[in-house]
Design a protein around this nucleic acid. Structure first.
Lengths: 171, 171
DNA sequence: TTATGGGTTGATATAGTATAACAGTATCTG
DNA sequence: CAGATACTGTTATACTATATCAACCCATAA
């Protein structure tokens, strides 16, 4: 069985930030930043981990673990699910990538090393994803938690809607 | 094969609101509210849909689709995944239940018919879930979206942490 | 040097979550 | 009655994720 199913993208997603920019060296920058971060924290930035981060940066969109795995397999870096999941676990647990819960997908972090509360804007048509900031949800969520005695450790914020391009096309 | 796997709950989850209350008639109230809402909108509140809502209300916790299915099957209401997923689709799309993305789980809505932006407080130990309010994320997320031209249609907010009970036990 | 241990990788198997597709049934309505 | 619509029953399959165990690498200490 040759697996020809189209696993992703009804339409092709544009860039993550909804803006065009010179993408060529922002990959290199991000990889360098990851490298520095790993060196500083004595983390093992192995080829598989590095390559997965590169893939996320290159595609610059949210990708499923199996999309990534397909690429890794084509490059001879491993063909079994754990290969992808292990690398993604590493990247997400060290703040180099994020998991988008709504999509079961992963994306490179736009602000590695900054210890932030990311919020994602997800286009329901083209699946493009932008990473924004929420400022720690200090507001009503924090109040609600405090009122009940709940201790917040991590917050996920994901908004679904239409990116500028698709919103225009829709109109 | 008799399927004895324990699919859920390392520990048993207490109530959703992290507070004790007379739960006996809040189920009846909620079902009645759902009934009214469906009548008003000419929706078909079928036995399966009603029963799934009741199950969510009775257990008063986030449940996986297969947990629900197990109960439906035991009651002779259907044993195939679509049975549960169809009912859950109906309930979630009409605001009677919510999906908790982080957990691949579902929970009855605490404020049906109010068109709100729910925020969930999820205990990572006992898996209890409380539904709070965010007030539409008017803040930084809205700003970010407006700045980029993104049109928000739906927002998911999920916080993971420790509920009062588990936080205390932890200390 | 060898032993030990921690962390990583390779590989197989399986678990858990969700949907496609199609046939059947009920109900409404023209 | 015919046709449309919506729901249910059922089979099959797709997609997402993890458990497990063996092998390997390499740093460090006996």
């Amino acid at each position: 069985m040759t697996q020809t199913t189209p696993r992703t993208s009804p339409q092709i997603a544009p860039s993550v930030g909804f803006d065009r920019h010179d993408h060529s060296h922002c990959i290199a920058d991000a990889v360098q930043a990851a490298e520095d971060l790993c060196a500083a924290q004595k983390l093992n930035f192995t080829p598989a981990r590095r390559r997965v981060l590169e893939i996320l940066l290159e595609r610059h969109r949210a990708m499923g673990a199996y999309d990534i795995l397909e690429i890794l397999a084509a490059e001879g870096l491993g063909a079994q699910p754990p290969v992808a999941y292990r690398a993604l676990d590493f990247l997400t647990s060290h703040g180099l990538a994020h998991r988008i819960e709504r999509m079961n997908a992963y994306t490179a972090c736009a602000h590695p090393g900054e210890d932030h509360v990311p919020a994602f804007l997800i286009c329901r048509l083209c699946k493009a994803v932008a990473e924004a900031e929420t400022g720690l949800e200090g507001g009503r969520l924090g109040d609600a938690a405090r009122a009940t005695g709940f201790v917040i450790e991590k917050v996920v914020v994901e908004a679904e809607g239409l990116c500028p391009t698709c919103a225009e096309a829709e109109a």
